[in-house]
């Protein structure tokens, strides 16, 4: 949880305090931003075009005495009406065209893009690096990416719809259960940029944050190597403790005995627990394993059946580590 607190106090990099948009940090941003600023200034112009006459008329033609008649009853003028119908058409056609061009660019993935797999689940992101055999996850996960190289995200959801939004990159894409969606970016600035979930997904929707860390190539390679080494050789108990936050078990299961969305892990190992229906079951290695991989198989009495499966996200040694961790919580 502390990581989230820290995350919330971080700043979204902004170009300057007077800027409308956050700092542009991707190739897409520059092509989106000029259109955004064009829209702002043209809309200010259009706003004045309709509002100034109205204000001026209401001063100039203000009724001075009771019962005063209008100066004229003019109620049509074909030329003016044609102008205010057709000119906006041209303006809007322009917006449509440039918006569409930018949109196509946002979704046309370069052939040399590096692929990352993104899994959304309540309430954290997991990013897998298929080429490098590592993954990062958890609320506030740091997603390392190289500077100046196109990166493609192939995304799917474990449960409900989420949406992957990086304001500094100007990209956003819904992440759906049961199908893949993708988006890409090429980072142009070194730094840390927040990722928000922008499709409402429940209680901790607003904590479903991650950080994209853009690094120069050599630093990025070092980061990869360090990541790979991190989990190797960690004793099972420590690995389990790490996975507990990394896989966001902590979003639903506490360690101090207080029930949250799921039962607490404290002191359950080796004891009987009451299930929905008549049955009870002993919390042992087999039960924990099943609960992680097939969460709906046995539901502890009094809790909603909402846990997603972690099948395919945890290795055998990860599962063993989690069991060891739960076992240690007397």
């Amino acid at each position: 949880m502390d990581s989230v607190k820290e995350l919330l106090s971080m700043r979204l990099p902004v170009a300057s305090t007077m800027s409308w948009l956050p700092e542009a940090a991707s190739t897409a941003a520059s092509s989106v931003d000029w259109l955004f600023y064009f829209l702002i200034w043209s809309c200010v112009g259009l706003f004045l075009l309709v509002v100034v006459p109205v204000i001026w008329f209401s001063i100039r033609y203000r009724r001075k005495i009771e019962g005063q008649k209008a100066l004229s009853q003019v109620d049509h003028n074909v030329k003016i009406e044609a102008a205010w119908t057709l000119l906006p058409c041209i303006y809007l056609a322009f917006l449509f065209y440039w918006g569409f061009i930018g949109f196509v660019d946002l979704y046309t993935i370069p052939f040399n893009a590096k692929t990352l797999r993104v899994i959304g689940q309540k309430w954290n992101w997991t990013v897998q690096y298929p080429d490098d055999d590592i993954s990062v996850s958890g609320q506030g996960a740091v997603i390392g990416v190289p500077l100046g190289q196109p990166v493609q995200l192939i995304m799917s959801s474990q449960d409900v719809i989420h949406s992957f939004f990086v304001p500094n990159f100007r990209i956003k894409q819904d992440v759906l259960p049961g199908r893949y969606s993708s988006i890409w970016f090429q980072a142009t600035k070194i730094g840390e940029f927040p990722v928000f979930c922008t499709e409402y997904c429940g209680d901790e929707h607003s904590k479903m944050l991650a950080i994209i860390k853009v690094m120069p190539q050599d630093e990025y390679q070092e980061w990869l190597t360090k990541k790979k080494g991190e989990d190797v050789g960690l004793p099972p108990l420590e690995l389990g403790q790490k996975l507990y936050t990394q896989k966001a078990c902590n979003a639903c299961h506490t360690l101090d005995g207080t029930p949250k969305i799921g039962p607490s892990f404290k002191g359950i190992y080796g004891h009987m627990t009451q299930l929905e229906g008549m049955a009870a079951v002993k919390v042992d290695d087999g039960y924990i394993r099943e609960s992680i991989l097939e969460p709906q198989a046995k539901i502890v009495k009094g809790y909603p059946p909402v846990m997603p499966t972690f099948k395919g996200q945890l290795s055998e040694s990860d599962i063993n580590a989690l069991i060891e961790f739960i076992k240690s919580l007397k």
């Binding site: 259109l35 829209l39 917006l95 449509f96 918006g99 949109f103 990209i171 499709e199």
Partner: peptide, 16 residues
């Protein structure tokens, strides 16, 4: 401001 949201590439940033 609806024009911003109707413009495809801008809506990607502003949506939700």
């Amino acid at each position: 401001t609806g024009c911003f949201l109707g413009t495809l590439s801008i809506d990607v940033h502003l949506h939700d």
